[in-house]
């Protein structure tokens, strides 16, 4: 089991968190939606695994490259 950081690819605000710790995700499943330039931008699981932690809350500002969740894969 490796712990994989799921990073925001853009600077944005956290709009809607869709996965919670313990959820099993397939590769490409949406973890959360960020909002940038009035668009909802999905953050997808880079591979299949279980969400170990969500590191941000709705409304938070995140930077490009910032880890927003941890995945056990």
């Amino acid at each position: 089991m490796a712990e994989v950081k799921i990073a925001a690819e853009i600077t944005a605000s956290v709009w809607q968190i869709q996965a919670k710790p313990g959820d099993q995700l397939a590769e490409g499943d949406t973890v959360m939606l960020l909002e940038s330039m009035k668009m909802e931008i999905p953050v997808a699981a880079p591979r299949a695994g279980r969400i170990a932690a969500v590191l941000v809350a709705e409304g938070d500002q995140v930077e490009e490259g910032q880890a927003v969740a941890l995945l056990e894969a």
Partner: peptide, 8 residues
């Protein structure tokens, strides 16, 4: 690519 800043 709208996935990045809506394409801005």
């Amino acid at each position: 690519d709208p996935y990045f800043y809506g394409g801005s």
